[in-house]
Computed example of a mutant assay.
Amino acid sequence: MSATTNTRKRLTSDAMIASIADSDRVARAPFGHALLAAARRDPRIVGLSADLAKYTDMHIFRDAMPDRFYQMGMAEQVMMGAAAGLAEEGFVPFASTYSVFATRRAYDFLCLDIAERMLNVNIVAALPGLTTGYGPSHQATEDIAILRGMPNLTIVDPCDSVDIEQAVPQLVASAGPTYLRVLRGAVPTILDEYDYRFELGKAAALRTGRDVLLISSGLMTGRALEAAEALAADRVDVGVLHVPTIKPLDEAAILAAVAEDRLILTLENHSVVGGLFESVAALLVRSGVGRRVTPVGLPDEFLIAGALPTLYDRYGVSTTKIIERVRALL
Results as ranks from 00 to 15, higher is better:
137 S>A: 12
117 R>W: 01
276 L>K: 05
322 I>F: 00
245 T>P: 04
104 R>V: 08
224 A>T: 06
219 L>K: 09
159 C>V: 10
47 G>L: 12
96 S>E: 05
329 L>M: 11
97 T>N: 05
258 V>S: 05
283 L>G: 13
111 C>T: 08
116 E>T: 02
64 A>E: 12
93 P>W: 00
109 F>M: 15
65 M>W: 00
277 F>A: 08
108 D>I: 06
118 M>C: 13
312 Y>P: 03
286 R>Q: 15
248 P>R: 07
159 C>P: 05
105 R>C: 07
153 L>M: 11
14 D>A: 12
44 R>M: 07
278 E>K: 13
74 M>D: 01
257 A>T: 13
131 T>E: 12
192 D>N: 15
126 A>Q: 06
4 T>Q: 13
131 T>Y: 07
197 R>Q: 14
187 V>K: 09
56 T>H: 11
14 D>Y: 07
327 R>A: 08
303 L>G: 08
81 G>Y: 01
296 V>W: 00
281 A>S: 14
184 R>D: 04
298 L>Y: 08
316 G>H: 03
256 A>V: 06
140 A>M: 05
274 G>A: 07
68 R>C: 03
317 V>C: 00
123 I>A: 10
329 L>K: 09
142 E>W: 05
256 A>M: 09
201 G>F: 03
104 R>W: 11
270 H>T: 04
291 R>V: 13
26 V>D: 01
48 L>G: 11
126 A>M: 10
175 A>I: 10
216 S>R: 06
238 V>I: 12
329 L>W: 04
28 R>I: 12
296 V>S: 04
287 S>R: 14
310 T>P: 00
178 T>H: 13
184 R>L: 06
77 Q>Y: 04
164 I>C: 14
113 D>S: 13
165 E>V: 15
310 T>S: 10
152 N>Q: 08
309 P>A: 00
58 M>Q: 14
95 A>L: 03
317 V>R: 00
162 V>P: 01
305 A>G: 11
304 I>M: 10
306 G>E: 08
174 S>H: 15
9 K>F: 02
80 M>T: 01
253 A>I: 05
194 Y>A: 11
55 Y>P: 04
311 L>M: 12
